[in-house]
Nucleic acid binder design. Structure first.
Length: 476
RNA sequence: CGAGAUGUAGCGCAGUGGCUAGCGUGCAUGGUUCGGGACCAUGAGGUCGUGGGUUCAAAUCCCACCAUCUCGACCA
């Protein structure tokens, strides 16, 4: 039986933006508050976030990182120490000017990111190369006073983790930068089932104050790209102004080499926009708060008995399982859990009991199958594994279909105005040409991939000798 | 931040100067139902976004502000 269209959601092909906000509301992910750009992360969204946290946190710890916590306030003088950094973040900082009735001598920025705090701390704890490296991470929220906001994609306060590390040598710090990018890549592909481009940001798009920025770029269903995680190499650009010094192996004073890397609650937005459909969310099993829902149809004694036994068995196998024995109609339950994106649904009614089987339905493709009650647990494993893989493959196929190779701007214009996606094109390295590209639907360079293809010898904009192959796209 | 649109019950909307603000859905209770958002009955639920103004009278007219959406600008 085919899944029936959900009438509470705008079709994603009709109006993607409205579809997105419909899902956010209907699946109870976020709730607006009276402060612009600040939302309640409702329990379901927070559960997704907690799952993301626990997976990433484990990966960080396996690579010898330690968690700590920095204060949320940055004295203005501290924020001003690195010039490029100030330029990038001061315009969107929120300021604390008063404590109670008293005006503060120095105003405090609510952290938009914590490089400056970390540097201040490092400066006072590092003495010799024996103190290095320091591999720190913190889970916290940060505030950036954005002008236009959207739940999860761009909020004024958002949840994230920020890793900050310092090293003896440039090589070691650069290895760290790449290592963390790869951790994010693995997380996106294996857990979120989202394919990503990895590469280096152009000078124009890099983090304010970095030597260079590596990023993960993912393509959403509507063909718009989302910068999904970043890893920055700072070299000594912060350690010099912040005076983070150590005595090296040759008894010489040196400044440390530094990195930072982060991923935010924006990833929830990516999950919605990559996988969701007109019936709601579709969550990859590895990150779904509930992996399996057992929906009973008619709660007679036998149905309830079989359902609760199954629930117990599935939970024993470690599956996050929910049993819904409410007296809502079957159709209601189906629609409800489809909205929430629960990967696998088990339907149990009197008819099933009589025949010794249950119905198992996949959220990702809507397929239903009849499964012998005794084999449900093993079948669940197979299906969940397959859903995880299929979701990735589907997203990968979409990304590939929407990745174009272009050699002139007319092509780019047509594509971006009809079926946008990633554009592969050559670039001479001049910022002017990046700005020219921006005239087409505001598109920007996404990244210079690690493995560049040779498309032509000439920059797509000016025709001069090309330096790099760049991925371009419209961004969220 | 600029242009446009919107804001009335949890959600979707009607009401465009008149006294008691409505409809659908959802919610509660009882009953009948149940394999794709069931039905009947009863009931609860409102600072009409906020503040000010005009008027005998404002959800309705005017001003300001706030929020949401779209498009720009800005933005890791």
């Amino acid at each position: 039986m085919a899944i029936v269209k959900n009438e509470k959601i705008t079709s994603r092909d009709d109006d993607f933006a409205k579809w997105y906000t419909d899902i956010v509301k209907q699946a109870h992910l976020a709730h607006y508050t009276s402060v612009k750009g600040c939302v309640v992360f409702e329990p379901y969204a927070f559960a997704i976030w907690e799952n993301m946290q626990s997976v990433l946190d484990k990966m960080f710890k396996e690579t010898r990182h330690e968690n700590l916590y920095m204060p949320m306030f940055i004295p203005e003088s501290l924020l001003l120490k690195e010039a490029e950094h100030v330029e990038g973040f001061a315009p969107e900082a929120a300021w604390v000017t008063h404590g109670g009735k008293n005006k503060l001598e120095e105003r405090l920025a609510v952290r938009p990111t914590s490089e400056t705090l970390f540097c201040d701390y490092y400066a006072s704890i590092i003495g010799s190369y024996r103190d290095l490296p320091k591999l720190y991470n913190q889970w916290c929220s940060v505030v950036r006073w954005e002008k236009s906001t959207r739940p999860f994609l761009r909020t004024r306060e958002f949840l994230w983790q920020e890793g900050h590390t310092i090293h003896e040598t440039a090589e070691e710090a650069q290895e760290e930068t790449l290592r963390m990018l790869n951790i994010y890549k693995t997380f996106f592909e294996k857990y979120l089932a989202i394919p990503v481009l990895v590469g280096k940001k152009t000078e124009k798009e890099k983090f304010a104050g970095a030597e260079y920025t590596l990023s993960l770029e993912a393509l959403m269903y509507d063909g718009v790209s989302l910068q999904s995680a970043t890893s920055h190499y700072f070299g000594q650009k912060f350690s010099i102004p912040f005076n983070v010094k150590f005595v090296d192996r040759n008894n010489k004073i040196q400044n440390v080499y530094q990195t930072s890397w982060g991923a935010s609650s924006r990833m929830i937005g990516a999950l919605i926009m990559v996988h969701g459909d007109d019936n709601g969310l579709i969550l990859p099993p590895k990150i779904a708060p509930k992996q399996i829902v057992i929906a009973t149809i008619r709660n007679d004694e036998k149905v309830l008995d079989v359902a609760s036994k199954l629930e117990k068995q599935l939970k024993e196998q470690g599956y996050r399982t929910i049993l819904d024995t409410s007296d809502k109609s079957a159709g209601f339950k189906f629609a409800e859990y489809e909205m929430k994106g629960v990967p696998l649904r088990i339907e149990i009614g009197p008819r099933d009991i009589a025949n010794g089987h249950v119905v198992m339905a996949r959220r990702d493709n809507g397929e239903k199958e009849i499964v012998d009650i005794d084999t449900v647990v093993e079948r669940a494993k197979i299906l969940l594994d397959d859903i995880q893989i299929s979701m990735y493959e589907k997203a990968l196929k979409h990304t590939k279909e929407r990745t174009y190779t272009c050699t002139n701007l007319d092509e780019v214009r047509v594509i971006m105005n009809t079926k946008p996606g990633f554009i592969k094109a050559m670039w001479c390295g001049d910022q002017e040409c990046e700005l020219k590209m921006k005239e087409i639907r505001g598109m920007k360079s996404r990244c210079i991939p690690f493995e560049e293809e040779h498309i032509s010898d000439h920059c797509i904009v000016c025709g001069k000798k090309a330096k790099h192959m760049v991925y371009w796209g419209i961004q969220y």
